[in-house]
């Protein structure tokens, strides 16, 4: 059985959550559409389902989780390099994986 690779939490969301590691170039189906990954999307990270303009809110769970700091293409990884909090943004320089 193959399971869906993407989880869309609310119909109006701009992003989906990956349920497995996704490689660039993979074509991914979800309930109401499809998207081709342009970046590697690690497990439990977010992929853009549509174009998101700089400054626009990014919706997940049906609510804004922050704002785009760059134009985001469909299929791109959505993370701290292209979205920021509307509340508090921490300094990231001491962040270590």
């Amino acid at each position: 059985m193959t399971r869906a690779a993407l989880l869309v939490l609310a119909a109006e969301d701009d992003v989906a959550v990956s349920l497995r590691a996704i490689a660039p170039g993979e074509r991914l189906l979800y309930e109401t559409g499809e998207v081709v990954a342009v970046d590697a999307i690690p497990f439990a990270h977010k992929i853009a389902l549509r174009r998101i303009a700089t400054g626009a809110p990014v919706r997940k769970f049906g609510v804004p989780i922050g704002r785009a700091t760059a134009d985001i293409a469909p299929g791109a990884l959505v993370h701290v390099h292209n979205i920021a909090s509307d509340y508090i943004n921490n300094a990231l320089e001491h962040f270590e994986d």
Binding site: V17, P42, F43, A44, H45, K46, K60, F61, V63, P64, I65, G66, V78, H79, V80, I83, A84, S85, D86, Y87, I88, N89, N90, A91, L92, H94, F95, E96, D97
Partner: peptide, 27 residues
């Protein structure tokens, strides 16, 4: 938290796929 200039949101959250404190919050 704004005065402290650091939210309840850290490096481990980020490597785990969370991007902002409000994304973590809703979860």
């Amino acid at each position: 938290y704004g005065t402290m200039e650091h939210g309840s949101f850290g490096g481990g959250n980020i490597s785990g796929g969370l991007s902002t404190v409000e994304e973590k919050s809703i979860g």
